[in-house]
């Protein structure tokens, strides 16, 4: 490769890491729900979009401060996820996995449609109290919204990791993920933990919606962020929180490198599919992903 500028590469890498941790946050919502309830949520992107709309509508349209928008998004998404679990997912418990998948795909369309009905077709914005002049860090020039987004994502990823690994509720949730029947026998109210998993998925989606919405703008296209969740979780492993983080970073970096090096060669557009090429490659080589759970075999 001729005259690769290290500054250029490091900017791509830094951008990739920042954006990647925001992908990781959104992917976490998916992993939480899959781990605890075995449901594959194809509406994760629409959850993010809905969270973004709620934040934008509260802050921009109702003229309330930004943090009220964030709060509204979080509360609204908890309520929405909670209701969906109760009304749509719970009756499907124990049905073939394809039924749940189809239900969440249907849900995705319904959410896209109702978002238009409720919030209109216009493009809205979320303005967080973040400056717009680029941030200089050594040789790097970075957009401040990405730094804030990555910071918030990492804080929440750490908080969720602590919750899952150390708290009483987290241990119970992992027990449910391990075996619902045995969890029930230990006095764990399995349904309550299903609801909790969806509610946490709602919180994560709201945060993702706010951060991605602030970066990109809020309209129907925001749901496309959810598409990137699939390469992230296939790379990392469907049921691994650590996998969501690492998968997010890999996708973020891969995307930026291809935007920097491949796009100029072919005229653009590789950024959008390179993560999926990676995903397919991983599926062929290591279907459980980097950190996914293999069944423990004893001798």
């Amino acid at each position: 490769m001729p005259d690769v500028s290290w500054r250029f590469v490091s900017i791509l890498l830094a951008n990739g890491v920042l954006v990647g941790s925001m992908y990781a946050l959104v992917a976490l919502g998916f992993v939480l729900i899959y781990k605890a309830t075995d449901a594959i949520n194809f509406a994760q992107g629409e959850f993010v979009m809905f969270g973004g709309f709620l934040a934008a509508a509260t802050a921009d349209m109702a003229g309330l401060p930004w943090w009220a928008g964030v709060l509204a998004a979080i509360c609204g998404m908890i309520a929405l996820a909670f209701c969906l679990e109760r009304v749509v997912l719970r009756p499907l418990l124990g049905r073939p996995i394809i039924a749940v998948i189809m239900a969440t795909i249907g849900l995705a369309s319904v959410l896209r449609g109702t978002a238009v009905l409720a919030f209109g077709t216009g493009v809205q914005s979320i303005s967080l109290p973040v400056g717009s002049s680029p941030f200089h860090l050594g040789p790097l020039v970075l957009p401040p919204i990405e730094i804030v987004g990555a910071g918030v994502s990492l804080v929440f990823l750490a908080a969720f990791a602590w919750f899952f690994l150390k708290s009483r509720l987290g241990v119970a949730m992992r027990a449910v993920a391990d075996s619902q029947q045995v969890a029930m026998a230990m006095g764990i109210n399995v349904r309550r933990y299903f609801a909790l998993a969806w509610a946490l998925g709602g919180v994560v989606s709201a945060l993702g919606g706010v951060l991605w919405g602030a970066m990109l703008a809020v309209d129907n296209q925001l749901a496309l962020v959810g598409l990137k969740v699939f390469p992230v979780i296939i790379l990392g492993g469907l049921d691994s929180i650590l996998g969501a983080v690492v998968g997010g970073l890999v996708v973020g970096v891969a995307e930026n490198l291809s935007a920097g090096f491949l796009d100029p060669l072919v005229g653009g557009g590789t950024k959008d599919f390179v993560p999926f090429v990676l995903m397919i490659a991983v599926l062929m080589v290591r279907p459980e992903g980097m950190f996914g759970r293999r069944r423990i075999e004893r001798v």
């Binding site: 241990v171 027990a175 391990d178 075996s179 029947q181 045995v182 759970r293 423990i296």
Partner: peptide
């Protein structure tokens, strides 16, 4: 029966 531990815990 069958020693049903939570394997991943």
């Amino acid at each position: 029966e069958g020693r049903r531990v939570f394997e991943n815990l």
